[in-house]
Design a protein around this nucleic acid. Sequence first.
DNA 1: AACAATTATATTTTGTACAATTGAATTTTA
DNA 2: TAAAATTCAATTGTACAAAATATAATTGTT
Lengths: 152, 152
Amino acid sequence: MDFEQLKLENQLCFPLYAASRIITRKYKPLLDPLGLTYTQYIVMLALWERDSLSVNQLGEILWLDSGTLTPLLKKLEGQGLVRRSRSVQDERMLIVEVTDLGWQLQEKAAEVPLKMAGCLNISADEGRLLQGLLHKIMESERERAGSWTKLR
Amino acid sequence: MDFEQLKLENQLCFPLYAASRIITRKYKPLLDPLGLTYTQYIVMLALWERDSLSVNQLGEILWLDSGTLTPLLKKLEGQGLVRRSRSVQDERMLIVEVTDLGWQLQEKAAEVPLKMAGCLNISADEGRLLQGLLHKIMESERERAGSWTKLR
DNA sequence: AACAATTATATTTTGTACAATTGAATTTTA
DNA sequence: TAAAATTCAATTGTACAAAATATAATTGTT
């Protein structure tokens, strides 16, 4: 038996996994000077866009759970980039907001996507196409679960 | 300033990162019964296809380096799925080959891709398209570096 | 043959991920 | 309104992965 379906070149998961790691690796030299890991970078992207978010909202937007976010956010707080405080309306909720230092970092971070843009050997059209397909996977998964927290 | 280029929806990296984690997560319940993690699974895929490979070859095929592979292969060896032995010609090289137990596992693993196939809400055509775009990213990266080991 | 450079793997450290609990706050229901 | 159920975040524990660095074997050069 040669199990055609087990061949690496017939997998969709593998190029997804590999490409993701390749891209993350490409970000590293750009993010190191900012003192951010890639995951911390996307957390900051989400926060810069919305000013402040609860841990739960962050998790929903980024598909990360509290077990990953809590220690990560504490590190960002330790670096002075974000402030963490309980909501007055609902004390179960922890609000994360960008500090002045965090906003200063945004200006430095602004050049990261520009530097990355030239790195990928695919056209803008292909990029949009790829993005669309990936979003389709993500959204279909979001629907399937109803709420992302129900995933596990 | 609103830094359009920093918005999450304008990133290509993020859906790649998120979709990759979502897929890996979907594999977990299928791989748990086999006693494999996702990374171990793709290592076994590569080995099943080639029978035996050096650590270096594995890394090249899967874009993984020895820091990831060495402990992973030791675990697979501990489970009795692979055998590790130094090459006689060049003792720097470590040859990894599938054991009888490893070949038995292949038969169980054969149903994994079939079970996954129905899970993704994208058509076969879209899958191929996606695969092609991802391979393009990977290959352009391979060329850029000359050899993958030069990446760092 | 001696030395430097290269190659291949291993080790260490840090970061990320998931699962299972806990505890507190809130909402629902009886 | 009291009790039960739900929600949210934190915590704990374990496992995995990635990068940097170290070590050992080989090759090339003079």
